[in-house]
């Protein structure tokens, strides 16, 4: 017995759900970023599973672009977090509500 495409898709769904739950539960901005990475990886897993199932390489190309965008997003996001934390050490995401005008 071998794992089917559906088993990979179910695993990706579970991973996506865990990431979404963590994004809503946690308040540390760094951990919330990690949860976004979990959700991106779930989507990558779906892309590769279906690309292999249909023997179409375009799914893997999409995963390549997702990885590039994820790297750029992490760099910019961590830059923003650093500049916020430098001014207010120990800030959680709720403290940013003070930014409203």
């Amino acid at each position: 017995m071998e794992p089917t495409t559906t088993s990979y898709l179910v695993l990706a769904a579970l991973l996506f759900g865990i990431g979404a739950t963590g994004l809503m539960i946690r308040r540390n901005p760094l951990v919330m970023f990690m949860c976004i990475e979990l959700m991106l990886n779930a989507v990558n897993l779906t892309f590769v599973a279906l690309a292999t199932r249909f023997s179409d390489i375009d799914g893997q190309t999409a995963v390549f672009f997702v990885m590039v965008v994820a790297a750029a997003e992490v760099v910019v996001g961590l830059g923003i977090i650093i500049s916020i934390m430098r001014r207010r050490p120990g800030a959680t995401v709720d403290d940013l509500a003070e930014l409203r005008g």
């Binding site: 179910v10 769904a13 996506f16 759900g17 865990i18 739950t21 963590g22 809503m24 539960i25």
Partner: peptide
């Protein structure tokens, strides 16, 4: 948030 996350997980997995 925990209930919502569990709901999203169950719905997506069920759809798959």
């Amino acid at each position: 948030a925990a209930v919502l996350g569990a709901g999203v997980t169950v719905l997506v997995a069920g759809a798959v």
